[in-house]
């Protein structure tokens, strides 16, 4: 179980709180939405939950233990803008292999074509890159996914494709998923419950 207890974060002791006193639990196999107005710290919270940054106050635990500092992190974050989360000087096959060699049926389900593997990131569109970012986050070590507005910039078909894959994987592997989004219809469709963040 991924457990956040009173998480608060600010960049420096003098700056204002980005978010304060956030408490919730994410159980395996559970799909939970997180929404709130722009600038309420959702993206920063996502980074804290996946171990990119440490909370200023509060405790984050995975099965009552802190997140591992080294090695593959069982909580994986997928970013809103895949073009920033992929090295521009790598080929797409390298991007996948940094994480693992995804089985062919996963690539098929995500609509990743064989020819794309040899391409450079700037030759693919945002929607195509995001499918790679999702595949990369689904390595065997993953137990929780933090999806930060991952389909906000995508068309409806690509959005549905990506979410079908994530929902199917979550069911099969008992993954916990936190869906950060503004989009009420999407949250309603995929999530069991939704957490509202205040400003």
């Amino acid at each position: 179980m991924l457990k956040a207890e009173g998480l608060s974060f600010r960049y420096t002791p003098n700056s204002g709180w980005v978010f304060q006193n956030i408490t919730f639990e994410l159980r395996p196999g559970e799909i939970v939405g997180l929404s709130g107005p722009s600038g309420c710290g959702k993206t920063t919270l996502g980074k804290v939950l996946a171990g990119y940054i440490s909370p200023t106050k509060g405790r984050l635990s995975l099965d009552d233990r802190p997140l591992p500092r080294r090695g593959y992190c069982p909580v994986q974050l997928i970013f809103q803008h895949p073009e920033l989360a992929i090295n521009t000087r790598w080929r797409m096959s390298q991007v996948l292999e940094e994480s693992f060699s995804p089985p062919l049926d996963l690539l098929r389900a995500l609509g990743i074509e064989n020819g794309w593997l040899k391409r450079w990131p700037h030759e693919l569109s945002g929607g195509e890159l995001q499918r790679f970012a999702v595949a990369r986050a689904l390595a065997p070590g993953t137990r929780y996914l933090i999806a930060d507005e991952i389909t906000t910039m995508l068309d409806a078909i690509t959005q549905a494709q990506i979410w079908q894959v994530i929902l199917e994987q979550a069911r099969r592997r008992n993954l916990g998923v936190l869906v950060i989004s503004h989009e009420a219809p999407l949250l309603e469709r995929v999530c069991g419950r939704v957490i509202e963040l205040k400003q």
Binding site: I157, Q159, A160, Q164, E183, L186, R189
Partner: peptide, 21 residues
């Protein structure tokens, strides 16, 4: 029609494949 069906407020069902490069 496929785009319409794929919306989360409708059926949320995608069609397979991807736009050709």
């Amino acid at each position: 029609q496929a785009l319409w069906r794929a919306l989360p407020q409708n059926q949320f069902v995608p069609i397979a494949g991807s736009q050709p490069p």
